[in-house]
Design a protein around this nucleic acid. Sequence first.
DNA 1: ATAATAACCTGAGGGC
DNA 2: TGCCCTCAGGTTATTA
Length: 270
Amino acid sequence: MPELPEVEVTIKELKPKLVGRSITRIDVRNPRLRFPIPSEIQEIAGASVESLERRAKYIYMRTDHGTAVVHLGMTGHLSVVPPEKEIGKHDHWDMLLSDGNILRYNDVRRFGALLWTKGDPAELAPLRDLGPEPLSDAFNPEYLEKALAKRVLAIKCALMDNRIVVGVGNIYANESLFRAGIDPRRESGSITAEECGRLVAVIKDVISEAIESGGSTIKDFYTPDGEPGYFAQKLEVYGRTGEPCVKCGTPIEAVRLGQRSTFFCPKCQK
DNA sequence: ATAATAACCTGAGGGC
DNA sequence: TGCCCTCAGGTTATTA
């Protein structure tokens, strides 16, 4: 479900409902997520929430007892609900808040995660090798050129590799390559310095615009407040197989790269 | 080391 | 109505 913009929007809406509250208790109904929820998560009981931050697609919930790290996987969703709200089929855990409400995690496919650390969350195994944030200065044309050099994998697969840059999922990889006019099947090592410059610029643009639009609602993404994202209306190639290219009218084509659907205009993307 | 593939899950939708 | 197939916004584990 969520790419970086969707996670960003989730955090923005949860902040005022969580920061400054305490977690009185956590109820784990099903610990079998992407990684088993560690039993140490119980240490969060009584902790005060200090901040919510994002790293890649992970959400850091910093407390005075330690940091809970949440990943939404493909179908994860966080919401703050009143105590009388009945528990649904895929509601895997609840954090009871000091104001009486509940932070509830729902995840149909269970590809998400809930981790716990008393140290630096960036040192946790799944986060250790993450590349730079796409909106940071560390993600720049020189960096990308070096990261792609001599690599033979398709440029689209490289952009979706978290060790090269984080937060660029299938939707935004497709959209960015279209805006940059680059064929997603190109070998990474064949991308020129000038093209790296274009790619970095459009990735920053696409992600910023998607955050401003509240994310992309394709099937079922909605924010903790139940709002859909509106970036889907601006998608130019994703999911548009056979429809005319917005620039030249040529039908959009679809191929499969790294087992993911890939959309492009055969005329505009070289 | 790198690149491609399989795997983890559930549900929706299409074709027959 | 039901069965079988494919697809889905992510990431790790395994295999060449």
